[in-house]
Amino acid sequence: MSGPAAIGLWGVPLALIGGAIRVSTPYIFVGLGETITERSGRINLGQEGTLVFGAMIGYGVAIMTGSPWLGVAAACACGAVFGLFHGWICSFPKVNDIAIGIAMMQLGVGLAIFFGKPFIEPAAPHLPAISLGWWSAVPQIKAALDVNSLFILGLALALFLNWAFRNTKYGLMLRVVGDSAEAARAMGLNPNRVRLYATAIGGGLAGIGGAYLSLYYPGSWNEGISSGQGLMAVALVIFARWNPLGCFFAALLFGGAGALGTALQSVGVTQGYYLFYAAPYVLTLIIMTATSSRSDSLVGAPGELSITK
């Protein structure tokens, strides 16, 4: 058997699709989690710390128990604790949620690195991939369509949230609390409690995003595992205007664009790679500028959100 044939320039679109699928999942989970949190009227910039801690604890638990799924569960649980903590602290009057988020980012990353040293060298069992490329004989396509179940779960979650925000009691509660605490109180809701749960769920999802990083792709724990994905995901929520499906597609777009720099070099476009690596950021900025306008910049923004007030 000879090695797989080169696919030349087709490698670029393939890498973009494959990259979108491989790289987007952490953005999807953090983004959806943050969408829930922000819909309740709080912003949690600490998601970056939650993501990194989730990556570490997920990896560590997977090594110790031999089960990557237990790792995901542990990451989710720890993320929820981080979220609860953020939600609890911010329920006190005058405490700034943005600032607490930045401090939590510092704490989360710090704790992850502090406790993560023994897990850098050993290899943990990876989450299994589902091969959606069975119909193709081309190994590159097979590889690009190796999809992790968390990605599919992320898509399902986006669809579910999109429906649930509009059609369920809890979705309505969340939105009322996010748009006006006054109105929520008038309805007999306790805004702080709703926000507490929303932040906890958001943190739990961010933890899962972290576990994906360490247990599937790139599939290793090290101190540089996140190059700001958690922070960027929070930004993508604003970009997606607090819409779960928008969030999903924003994550795909961002992940795909991120594959451009390496894909172009692999087909021989070798100059200016720093600029190609900046493509996701440039693209996001351009789309945002093109789709925003002076008057409707806050369409979809929860009225209680400090960052858009």
Binding site: G3, R22, G258, A259, G261, Q265, S266, V267
Partner: peptide, 20 residues
């Protein structure tokens, strides 16, 4: 572009694999 970028390194390995 830098000394420790796990996601980009994994993407680079995949891109090279795609090129045979």
């Amino acid at each position: 572009g830098d000394w420790n970028l796990p996601v980009k390194e994994a993407e680079a390995a995949n891109a090279l694999a795609d090129q045979g």
